[in-house]
Amino acid sequence: MKKRNKIIYWIATAWLSLGMLSTGIVQLIKMKEEVTNIEQLGYPVYLLTLIGIWKILGVIAILIPKFALLKEWAYAGFFFAMTGAIFSHLAGGNGAKELFGPVLLLVLTVVSWYFRPADRKISPTGGTRKSDEK
């Protein structure tokens, strides 16, 4: 893997992990602002616990070595959660302020996924890749 790609991967992954971990904790402890936001979007408050746990587990999956398939699932979960958040805010008539966080985390998810090292990818045969094909 080129040094540039490795730097991009780790910067994006660090920011993605910090963002998902912090928002996951905020959702898990049900901060007042987060409860208000989810109620305004029309979702039940218990959804915060589920999303918070998934985000924290997703961060762990992305950061630990090996388990390429688990990483793919975590990236997919982040992608679906953030696109769902963006759509929910748009449907709820929210402005750019509410869209900034989910859009940023979506971009970081895609960048981290795209630049991930070969040993964090699934090969076409189902195992992890041993060589970098980028």
Rank of each mutant, 00 (worst) to 15 (best):
M1F: 10
K3V: 11
R4T: 15
N5L: 09
N5V: 02
K6V: 07
I7Q: 13
I7G: 11
I7Y: 13
I8R: 10
Y9M: 07
I11F: 08
A14Y: 03
W15F: 15
L16P: 06
L18W: 08
G19R: 00
M20E: 15
M20T: 10
L21N: 08
S22P: 09
S22A: 13
T23L: 02
G24C: 06
G24A: 09
I25S: 11
I25P: 09
V26I: 13
Q27P: 04
Q27N: 13
Q27F: 06
L28P: 03
I29H: 03
K30A: 10
K30L: 09
M31K: 12
M31F: 07
E33C: 02
E34Y: 05
E34P: 04
E34I: 10
T36P: 05
N37Q: 12
N37T: 06
N37R: 06
I38L: 04
I38T: 01
I38W: 00
I38F: 01
I38Y: 00
I38K: 00
E39R: 08
Q40L: 11
Y43M: 07
Y43I: 03
P44V: 08
Y46M: 12
T49S: 12
T49M: 10
L50R: 12
L50V: 14
I51H: 08
G52M: 02
W54L: 13
W54V: 13
L57A: 11
L57Y: 09
L57W: 05
G58C: 09
G58H: 09
I60L: 13
A61Y: 04
I62W: 07
L63H: 08
I64C: 06
P65N: 08
P65R: 11
K66C: 06
F67G: 05
F67A: 14
F67Y: 14
L69C: 07
L70E: 04
K71N: 04
W73Q: 08
A74I: 03
A74Y: 02
A76P: 02
A76C: 08
F78N: 07
F78E: 03
F79G: 04
A81L: 09
A81S: 14
A81Q: 10
M82Y: 03
M82I: 00
M82E: 06
M82L: 06
T83R: 03
T83P: 00
T83Y: 01
A85N: 00
I86Q: 01
F87K: 01
F87I: 00
S88G: 04
S88R: 00
S88H: 00
L90F: 06
G92K: 01
G93D: 06
N94E: 15
N94K: 15
A96D: 07
A96K: 07
K97N: 15
K97D: 15
E98Q: 11
L99M: 04
L99C: 02
L99H: 02
L99S: 02
V103R: 00
V107L: 11
L108Y: 05
L108E: 09
T109W: 00
T109E: 01
T109Y: 00
V110L: 14
V111Q: 11
V111K: 04
S112F: 01
S112E: 06
W113L: 12
Y114I: 11
R116W: 01
P117L: 03
P117F: 01
A118V: 03
D119Q: 12
D119P: 07
R120Y: 12
I122P: 07
I122Q: 10
I122W: 08
G127I: 14
G127P: 14
G127R: 14
T128C: 09
R129I: 07
K130N: 13
K130Y: 10
E133K: 15
K134F: 14
